[in-house]
């Protein structure tokens, strides 16, 4: 037992600081992806909710593609495909190679997946807002943009929150995939620790527990946000 505690010690002898740093990378990656994914997802949902069939179709193609591809494959396509495309472009422009940042590639791939699912959540939230809300806003003379911003979005947040909470938990877990393209997240650092110490079961168990702790903390936070979003709904 003391032996295991030593393995997790901070500093040169133990792996505690490496794992802590990995947790930090995992959390920041998820947090950095979130606004991007939410924004794209929202825009796609607006397109899907439009009365214009062409726009709906274009948005549906997006969802079909990024919901159907395995997460790992999307990541590799972005990473290697981005590498090749950017290298070709860079060689053309500056005459030298280009190194794709694995953090950025991971962020883009995760945002694509997150947004395709988020668009469905937003779309069903849109369906929960009655036409009267739009008509009321237009009758007051609000522009379409202001109607969206002041009337629809505040209600949308409450309706979409349960679905988005789920997606956040999925996103947090999906960040583990970026360890495959070399980003030193929690799982990658665990792998390194296992390579050195050969304590595979122990370290992967610790990594799983850390992911669980992140999920639990997120759930608590999300419950608070949901309570805040439901504050206007009266006592349940």
């Amino acid at each position: 037992m003391a032996n295991y505690m030593e393995l997790l010690a901070f500093g040169d002898s133990g792996w505690g600081d490496e794992l802590a740093h990995g947790v930090l990378v995992t959390v920041t990656l998820a947090l950095a992806t979130l606004p991007l994914g939410l924004l794209i997802g929202f825009l796609i949902a607006v397109a899907k909710n439009s009365s214009e069939p062409l726009l709906r179709k274009a948005a549906n193609v997006y969802t079909t593609i990024f919901r159907g591809l395995p997460e790992l494959l999307t990541l590799f396509l972005i990473y290697y495909g981005g590498q090749m495309a950017m290298s070709a472009l860079w060689r053309l422009l500056f005459g030298r190679a280009f190194e794709v940042n694995s953090y950025l590639a991971g962020m883009i791939a995760l945002a694509l997946m997150f947004s395709s699912y988020a668009s469905e959540v937003f779309l069903s939230a849109f369906k929960g807002i009655t036409v009267g809300q739009y008509e009321g806003a237009y009758a007051l003379g609000l522009s379409r943009f202001r109607t969206m911003l002041l009337i629809i979005v505040p209600q949308l947040v409450r309706l979409a929150l349960p679905g988005l909470s789920n997606l956040w938990l999925i996103l947090l877990k999906d960040t583990s995939l970026v360890s495959v393209i070399g980003l030193t997240d929690l799982l990658r650092n665990t792998n390194i620790a296992v390579g050195v110490t050969k304590q595979a079961f122990f370290f992967f168990f610790v990594a799983c527990s850390l992911y669980l702790v992140m999920s639990i903390i997120s759930s608590v936070g999300l419950r608070r946000i949901s309570a805040w979003a439901e504050r206007g709904q009266g006592r349940r």
């Binding site: 938990l169 877990k173 999906d174 960040t175 583990s176 995939l177 360890s179 495959v180 799982l187 665990t190 792998n191 296992v194 050969k198 304590q199 595979a200 079961f201 122990f202 992967f204 168990f205 990594a207 799983c208 992911y211 669980l212 999920s215 639990i216």
Partner: peptide, 20 residues
């Protein structure tokens, strides 16, 4: 446990963990 941890980490836990 199985819904709160990444599938990749579970796979590593079983595959490499078994080696121990």
């Amino acid at each position: 446990f199985f819904r709160g941890t990444p599938l990749l980490a579970q796979t590593f836990l079983v595959y490499y963990g078994a080696g121990q």
